[in-house]
């Protein structure tokens, strides 16, 4: 097991190394002039020269890379070139808890919807109930998350005025303010995610229900709920774990868009604002962090899967 974990951890770090290199070189190899883009129309020759010097673009690309890379390893991603010129690391450190809070709550909401929906669909396979659940799963997958966010604001914030329409309140200022600000965005992000998990649980449950040990358990005279929840569900959840890692990508992508609807200054909003302000150090940093979250979530999923199902370690 240790050997398997070691290989996976090294693999993840190699991927992150490559990602960092790619993120750096993309901006420099692409045709066009990022400096001109950053200065937009307002750039004079002097401003341009100053900007090139400030960003270190006057040095050869390999030197720039080593400087950036060395900084990155020490947690220094440069400074924002827009507004207050804050260090990128500080901006990211402030925004990360917001995105993680949103992702966490979306994940919980998704599971609350998906697990019962998946179990009921499988237990009532090909009935009207199953078809209804399947239709709602398709609906959840097809609904743009930012649109769902807008609908939720129209109903719960603008009309009923139950919940705030925008903003974020840290958990240190109380559980309810934190929850009330995050619940609508979390539903918007979690719905599509829950559709995927529910369909996955359904098909995985159907596989398990066909197994011999299920027939044996049924012949012992166990009740339907014991059969489903004690015997089938734990086995059916094993393959679901793998898809959670992949579907986490949807969660992060959803958060990027939905944070912008609710004006939550998380990673997604920092990324999009960075792009709109042509603040490239911030954009690089945000993309790097998003990809790191994604890579390490998948690493965690792989290790978890290896722990639960020993066959995986040796393949």
């Amino acid at each position: 097991m240790l050997d398997y974990m070691f290989r996976r951890v090294i693999g993840a770090f190699l991927v992150m190394l490559a990602v960092a290199t790619l993120v750096f070189f993309m901006l420099r190899l692409v045709p066009g002039d990022p400096i001109a883009a950053m200065l937009a129309d307002a750039g004079s020759e002097e401003a341009r020269a100053a900007m090139i010097k400030r960003l270190g673009f006057d040095k050869p690309v390999p030197v720039q890379f080593l400087k950036w890379f060395g900084g990155m390893l020490q947690g220094d991603l440069g400074n924002s070139i827009y507004g207050s010129n804050q260090p990128v690391t500080q901006i990211l450190a402030e925004s990360l808890p917001r995105t993680l809070s949103l992702a966490f709550l979306s994940f919980v909401i998704a599971l609350i919807i998906a697990v019962p929906a998946g179990i009921i669909s499988a237990a009532k396979k090909n009935t009207a109930t199953d078809n209804a659940f399947s239709f709602f799963a398709f609906l959840g997958l097809s609904m743009p998350d930012f649109w769902l966010a807008i609908l939720l604001i129209i109903v719960f914030a603008a009309n009923l005025q139950w919940l705030p329409a925008i903003g974020y309140s840290p958990i240190s200022e109380g559980l309810w303010p934190w929850f009330s600000h995050l619940i609508l965005p979390s539903i918007a992000v979690g719905t599509g995610f829950s559709a995927i998990i529910a369909r996955m649980i359904r098909s995985s449950m159907l596989e398990v229900l066909k197994a011999d040990y299920m027939r044996f358990a049924a012949s012992k005279g166990l009740s339907d709920s014991t059969l489903l929840l004690r015997h089938a569900l734990p086995n059916a959840l094993i393959p679901v774990i793998t898809v959670i890692g992949i579907a986490f990508a949807l969660l992060i992508s959803g958060a990027v868009v939905v944070e912008n609807v609710f004006a939550i200054k998380g990673l997604g909003r920092v990324l999009i604002q960075g792009i709109l302000n042509r603040d490239y150090p911030v954009v690089q940093g945000a993309v790097l962090i998003v990809s790191a979250i994604f890579v390490f979530t998948n690493l965690l999923v792989d290790i978890l899967y290896g722990l639960i199902d020993p066959r995986i370690r040796y393949s």
Binding site: V15, V19, A37, A249, L271, G274, V283, V287, V290
Partner: peptide, 19 residues
Amino acid sequence: LQWAFPNFIIAVYLVAVFG
């Protein structure tokens, strides 16, 4: 390597680079 990024983040980053 591409697998290390969610698809939508790739699209966002490429638009950031290309315009």
